[in-house]
């Protein structure tokens, strides 16, 4: 019985997620996208010298380094990946 209950909850959860996917996912994705591209800008202006952009990052930017460590390789990739029209289509 309990298991059946759980399954039912699982089904409603799935429907909820489906509806979220239909209606809200794009908006949430956009917000996160905007946030992430600001994050990339942030890393650029605080640690742009990592990519040879001639910025003198002030002393204190090194203090911020630990927090961005996990993002550095994807940041570099995103900064340097060649993009074209078809990237922006969806």
């Amino acid at each position: 019985m309990a298991e059946k209950e759980k399954k039912k909850g699982g089904f409603f959860q799935s429907v909820k997620e489906f509806v979220y996917g239909v209606a809200a996912h794009d908006s949430a994705r956009f917000a996160l996208k905007t946030r992430a591209s600001m994050e990339h800008l942030f890393i650029l202006i605080t640690m742009g010298d990592m990519l040879g952009v001639p910025i003198l990052p002030p002393y204190y930017s090194l203090r911020l380094l630990p927090y961005v460590v996990p993002q550095i390789s994807t940041w570099k990739r995103r900064m340097l990946r060649e993009k074209d029209l078809t990237d922006g289509l969806a």
């Binding site: 905007t34 800008l41 650029l44 742009g48 952009v53």
Partner: peptide, 23 residues
């Protein structure tokens, strides 16, 4: 130089205000 890079990296976020901080 930073503006050039922003264009190159396709960062469309309004950056003018923050580029200042890089200097």
């Amino acid at each position: 130089k930073i503006n050039w890079f922003l264009k190159f990296a396709d960062i469309t976020t309004k950056a003018e205000d923050f580029i200042e901080s890089a200097t």
